[in-house]
Design a protein around this nucleic acid. Structure first.
Lengths: 115, 115
DNA sequence: GAAATACTGAAGTATCCACTTGACAATTAG
DNA sequence: CTAATTGTCAAGTGGATACTTCAGTATTTC
């Protein structure tokens, strides 16, 4: 049947986000953009891939709120978008509490019965 | 030439990490493990995939410090490992400062010359 | 208007990856 | 010992994805 659960329409964002951040080229793009907004070709310069590839990555970054772009004349200017980053932090915060709950439970279990 | 930059041996961890977290099944596994340690088959129960698949995911989670497992008799017990989570938080912290530097630069640029 | 610049679109390719099946190994239970 | 339980290994499949090339399309520049 070749399942691969990709049915769920709720909660797509964090999926896209992690996936986007999982690529080194995209992270390099974000690092570069953290120096300030720039055109697609300038962004592409040190990356060692074609303009086309960079444009494709850009679409991925835009889709998950990590970058925004806007075209003016023939130049598309790219900048970081904090929305994606915020979502990431939210996810971390939420899940860290779950982690800590687990640690608490473990601690109280160990406290209750001495072995 | 079909490049696909996968040469770099430094900095592999964050790559694995994001990749690991990009999969909904693996995140579900972590959520479940945050309820406490459990066997592989118990972990697999609500996931709707085969035991084999779960075991494969487990290896991925272990490889990036998100889970640890240990086999005792015929049962492999799985638990969350905070190392991966810590690395994630470190990455976020570091990159948020870069974000904020950028915002500062943008602000001072706007302040310096009125438009 | 011709040439350069900056990007876009379509199509193809190699690789990766989530998942499966099916056979097997090891441990525990009856 | 025989069964059942719990997990592991090897191999394969289909779909995603990170690239590429090549042929456009706008927009500037000269």
């Amino acid at each position: 049947m070749t399942a691969r659960r990709t049915e769920s329409p709720p909660q797509i964002d964090i999926d896209r986000l992690f996936h986007a951040l999982g690529d080194p080229t995209r992270r390099a793009m974000l690092d570069r953009l953290s120096e300030g907004p720039m055109s697609v070709s300038r962004l592409a310069e040190p990356l060692g891939v074609t303009l086309t590839a960079v444009a494709q990555h850009l679409r991925v970054l835009e889709a998950c709120g990590l970058a925004r772009t806007e075209k003016l004349g023939r130049v598309r200017t790219c900048r970081i978008d904090s929305a994606g980053f915020d979502a990431l932090e939210r996810w971390i915060r939420d899940h860290r509490t779950a982690w800590e709950r687990r640690l608490d439970r473990l601690a109280s279990f160990l406290a209750e019965d001495g072995g």
